[in-house]
Each structure stands twice: as C-alpha cells, then as structure tokens.
Design a binder for these strands. Structure first.
Length: 425
DNA sequence: TCTGGGGTCCTAGGACCC
DNA sequence: TCTGGGGTCCTAGGACCC
C-alpha cells in the first residue's frame, strides 16, 4: 500500500505557523516581484481568488476582505518542508519526497485496519510537531493514492481505498482533468472523445491510450486498474538539470544589466551543483521580452554551449554562458525574463572512478537483450496495438566531459507492464 | 502599470557508424 | 546492380508535475 501525504495550502500555512493570529483568516502568498498569487488558504479560495492569478487583478477582493498578503519566502518554506519530511521519515517505513509539500509513504505488507489508524496518527503528529496540517490518501498504487488524497482533503480524515468497487466509485467522481498526469491538452483530447471521468479513462483499450497518450498514459491507466507501475523512489536522485531564471521587476534594456543578471543566475546554478556534488557539461542561456505585452516588439532566443570538461566552477561556467549571451543578445528590446540551465550533469567524484563504467555496461547489455526479447514477442501481437511499440533507451552522452558513463532512463515498468500484457493475451 | 520558478519524461527524426 | 539491419548520439519539441 502507498500513502500520499500532502501539506494543506503549504505556503499559506507556513506563514501561519509563525503568525497564529492568521488562523481562520484568508491568507495568500505571492510569486517573485509580487507578480501573481501562488498559494491560498481555504478562506482565500472561498473568496474566489485563483491560483496563478495576477495580483493586480485580485487586488479589489483582497482589500475588501482584508486578506493577509505575503511575498514568498522560499527559505522558510524549504525549512518547514524539511521538518515535515524528517517527521514523516521517522514514522513511515519507506518515504519518497515528491515535492516541497508532498511525500509518498510505503507500507509494504501492512494490514488495512492498522494502517488506517496509523495514518491518522501520522497526520496528528505532523500537525503537533511542525504546525503544518496534512492530508493522507492510502491506496494500492501511487496514482490511486493521489486520487484518494483529494477525497481526504475534503473530509479532513485519512482516506483509504482498497476494494475495486471503492476504486471505481472514487474514479467515477474524479473529473478527468483532475487526474494526476492529465493536463490541459490531454483533458481536451479525452473530452473530445467522450471521456469525462477517470473511470471512463481506466476502461479504455490499451492500444487507444498508447496511441494518443504515449507510454505515460498507459502507465497511468494500469495504475488506475491497481497495477503498480510507479515504484517508490526511496533514494533521491541527483538532478538531471538545474535551472535558475527570473522575471525582472522592471524592463532590462542594456547589455551590462543583462550580463549582471545572467552572471548571478550562473552563480546560483553552480552553487546548486556543488551542493549536489555534481558538475555540468552543457549550459543553456535564454532571454525573452514580455510575452504578455503584445504591443511591444517581441524577441526571444537561447543558446546551448558544450563545455570541454564538466565543471561546477562559477567563473568557468560564466565564461561560456556570457559567450552564449553575446551571441543572442539584441539591443533595442525591453527584456523581461532570462535564465540559465545547466545539463549534462555528472557526479563530481565519479570522474576518477572507472568502476561505474563496467557496472553500467553490464546492465546495458542485459537491458538490450530484454528489450529485444519483448519486442520479438510483441510483434506477434501487433493487431492488439494500433501503432508498433518502440522501446527506446534514451542516452545522454557525456563523452566530452571526459566521463565515459552513459546515463539512461528506462522505467522498470516497461518490462513488467508489457510482460503482464503479454501474459494476458 | 502589474502575469512564478524549477523540474521530469517521452517521441520523432537526423547524422553517423559498422 | 540492388539494397540492410542494428545501433548510438544528439536535438527539438511537447506533454506533464508541484
């Protein structure tokens, strides 16, 4: 069984922990430059204030109802998040930190009855020890736990879903656009095909789902059917990309100012790299004008540069990023946003260790053999699938970084899932 | 006047190699 | 003269998440 523990209105409640007089009052938190609304307490939601809404648009309601307004304080939220996660990892046998305010918990082999009371206990302890209220949903797969959590949010109780009849009624009442993994585009597509609830989606044929929503959609459908395809990621992976970007509070229209801003982004990126113990071998710099103001001339561009050797050093990275910036910067525009992304990330210490290389090669050979076998078997069943199934190993070469290890992603559920499909056919 | 920031994964296709 | 299969590496773009 999986649980999803989600902090309620996280940023708003972080502010409340340090200012209890705000309890039961509307609270909102604003983005950088106080541009838009990124968190709302229940009371603020009830006033009709929308997530992501520009601050100036909601200003009237905010003043009318004396809503408490905060500029975002990410250090505080990060710190509160750490406290919550620490409590959770002390209480649950397995945990996966999914985001700043969400954590998956694993309870392998636990009985339903004890789990329900135990989860209730966790909820209370987190509230008492950190001040942050949380919701917990329990179910056989992560996707179902996410859905159960939505119910838990409304009822203030832990929600446990197990029996298939419970699952079906849960999904029947879940609009398709609220399903984890279905965004705006997919919701549009599905509705156009008369799929309005998660239950309807669950019952669609595999071939159709794979054709229109790729492998992600199929995985999602299996998860809804109670087949777990998304394992708990117990160890936190190092980041594959690190990005620092900002919207400017005012327009930037000189190269000097842009150079200064971009340099500070690089500084932050390299800081994050060092914190993770990694180094980057590719950098991207991008700039653009205000996309909301269509009366101004628009321009946006980016440039990606490959470094000769992976590095985490600020001056080295700045050297390449500024080279890129010079190539794309055009005078005469009012720039509103810029950013730096570093990728081609390798473990910093690993460069001296060729050990990794051998382990990886062995794994790779094994992987390719497995994929080959599955593909052969699948070809016999092509009529079951409207498009041929392609198994791919995505590789990310870091050769230029003097590091021979290749990075791959191939989710384990590829093999298990298709094995099940084949067994069934 | 004023519209966030930081990530993940998948797919298709081209260049190239043996 | 005619015609391949299997694989790597990379890029661009699209979808999604919080």
């Amino acid at each position: 069984m999986f649980a999803l523990c989600d902090c309620n209105n996280f940023y708003a409640n972080c502010e409340r922990v340090f200012n209890p007089s705000l309890n039961n009052k509307p609270v909102i938190v604003l983005s950088n430059n106080d541009g838009s609304i990124i968190a709302r307490s229940n009371e603020a939601k009830a006033l009709g204030i929308q997530m992501g809404q520009p601050y100036f648009q909601a200003r009237k309601v905010i003043e009318e109802h004396k809503v408490a307004v905060f500029s975002s304080n990410y250090e505080l939220y990060g710190d509160m998040s750490n406290r919550v996660m620490t409590v959770l990892s002390g209480l649950a046998p397995e945990t996966e930190i999914y985001s700043i305010d969400e954590c998956f918990l694993g309870f392998p082999g636990w009985q339903e009855a004890e789990l329900l009371t135990y989860a209730q206990d966790i909820k209370e302890k987190v509230k008492n020890w950190t001040g942050i209220p949380v919701s917990i949903g329990l179910a056989p797969t992560k996707t179902l736990a996410k859905a159960a959590n939505k119910v838990a949010k409304k009822s203030e109780k832990v929600c446990l879903i197990r029996e298939s009849s419970d699952i079906d009624s849960l999904l029947e009442n879940l609009p398709i656009e609220e399903l984890w993994g279905i965004g705006r585009q997919y919701a549009k597509l599905l509705k156009a095909n008369s799929i309005h609830t998660a239950l309807q989606f669950k019952n669609m044929p595999d071939g159709w789902i794979h054709k229109h929503l790729t492998i992600m959609g199929l995985r999602l459908a299996y998860e809804l059917r109670g087949v777990s395809c998304l394992p708990l990621e117990k160890v936190q992976q190092t980041k594959k990309a690190i990005c620092t970007s900002r919207s400017f509070g005012h327009y930037v229209s000189t190269y000097t100012e842009m150079e200064e801003a971009v340099s500070s982004f690089v500084f932050k990126c390299s800081e994050k790299l060092r914190k993770e113990g990694t180094a980057a071998s590719v950098v991207t710099v991008f700039i653009h004008t205000n996309t909301f103001n269509t009366t101004l001339p628009q321009y946006s561009n980016s440039q990606t540069l490959r470094l000769p050797v992976a590095t985490d050093s600020t001056p080295e990275l700045i050297h390449y990023v500024l080279k890129g910036l010079k190539a794309i910067y055009k005078p005469g525009y009012a720039y509103k946003k810029a950013g730096v992304i570093v990728t081609g990330i390798v473990p910093n210490h690993a460069i001296q260790q060729n050990l990794f290389d051998e382990v990886d090669r062995a794994k790779h050979t094994q992987l390719m053999t497995t994929i080959d076998q599955i593909n052969k078997r699948l070809r016999k069943h092509t009529d079951k699938f409207q498009s041929p199934v392609k198994f791919a190993v995505q590789t990310h070469s870091t050769k230029e970084a003097n590091w021979p290890m290749q990075r791959k992603y191939l989710s384990p559920c590829y093999t298990t899932r298709w094995d099940q499909v084949l067994k069934a056919s």
